[in-house]
Amino acid sequence: MTTATMQVSQKDFEKAQEQLKLLKKDPGNETKLKLYALFKQATEGPCNSPKPGMLDFVKKAKWDAWNSLGNLSQDNARQKYTELVSSLISAESAGQTKDASPEESRHGGYETIIVTTKNNITKIMFNRPERKNAINHQMYREIIKALHEAGKDDSTIAVITGNGEYYTSGNDLNNFANVKPNEMEKMAKDGAVLLKEFVSSFIDFPKPLIAVVNGPAIGISVTLLGLCDIVYASDRVSTLQS
């Protein structure tokens, strides 16, 4: 890496630190731990401090997050830190923006996706960048609703994409967490019904449906690409189908 490149990287890293202070919404403990770990890795290198005691929960959580980065280089840590801050800023800006122009309308009532219409194009954007756009049950239902509404509005086509560095990382594992043994059968049946309705919303969509894959796509999101009429992918895209 050249000195000039390192200087630019350091400049971007310092800018990201300033941008992080401007966030109005708490990104959550998991994201804050990741930011802490990446910052420490970027500025000090791999974790070499002694592991805190089990009862010192906060310090132990920070140590675990930093230690989990292993031998990640300081340059890569700076890059990942900068990208994460950028995705948080983008998500917050998108959530606060009201009708960027008279030609663009933003559809309300959504928490896990952003839906806008401009120039007769409805854009549906996965909007959980802090979770790599992992699809939870709420997002499943909101995408179904968004496709249903886009199929009936005045738009000509619909575009699906992701906010941040990932298109989507597939199913959120929290969908399957904290399920009691006596609830597993019901959860499986309810999940099958939801998945069928979700896939059907793609199959039955009456207009051209375009996927703009902005980053890695994993699991169910890869399967769904085959149900779109056109797929555009950036050069950063990788796919993994489970």
Rank of each mutant, 00 (worst) to 15 (best):
T82D: 04
G164D: 01
Q241V: 15
N182E: 14
K123S: 13
G53P: 00
A61M: 07
D64F: 10
T117E: 05
E111G: 15
K132D: 10
M1S: 15
M184D: 03
S169L: 01
T43P: 06
N29T: 14
K180G: 00
T168N: 13
K51H: 08
G109N: 00
S238T: 14
T156P: 04
L84A: 08
M1V: 13
G151R: 04
K34A: 07
T112I: 08
D26G: 02
G53W: 09
T43N: 07
E18D: 11
N171S: 13
L88A: 03
E111D: 14
N175C: 13
R78I: 00
C47I: 01
G215A: 08
K62Y: 06
S105I: 13
T122F: 00
T223I: 11
W63M: 07
G28H: 08
K186S: 13
K180S: 06
S105Y: 12
M187Y: 07
A177E: 09
F198Q: 04
V213I: 01
S68D: 12
S242Y: 14
T2P: 13
V231Y: 00
Q19N: 11
K196Y: 12
G191H: 06
K60F: 08
W66L: 06
F39L: 12
G191W: 06
K123Q: 13
P27T: 06
Q17F: 05
A42M: 04
G219K: 01
A77E: 10
I218K: 07
N136I: 01
A146F: 03
V213Y: 05
S201G: 00
L35F: 02
I113K: 03
Y167C: 07
Q96G: 14
N174T: 13
Q241H: 14
A134P: 01
T122L: 02
G70Y: 00
S9K: 13
E185M: 10
S221A: 12
E18V: 09
S90H: 12
D235E: 14
A61D: 06
R78A: 01
G215K: 03
D204K: 13
E103V: 09
G170Y: 01
D99Y: 06
G226T: 06
M139V: 06
Q17K: 15
R236C: 12
A61R: 05
L209Y: 04
L227H: 13
D154L: 03
Q138C: 10
I135E: 09
I218W: 05
T122S: 01
A94V: 02
E104A: 09
L72T: 10
H137I: 15
N127D: 13
Q19S: 07
H107R: 10
L72Y: 02
E183W: 08
V193K: 15
A177Q: 12
N76S: 15
V212M: 11
G45L: 08
D190L: 12
T116D: 11
K51P: 05
F198C: 02
G45R: 00
S155K: 03
V115I: 06
L240E: 15
N178I: 05
T156R: 11
K145F: 08
K24S: 14
K34M: 03
A37C: 03
S87F: 11
N133Q: 10
Y232S: 00
K207S: 08
T2C: 14
W63T: 02
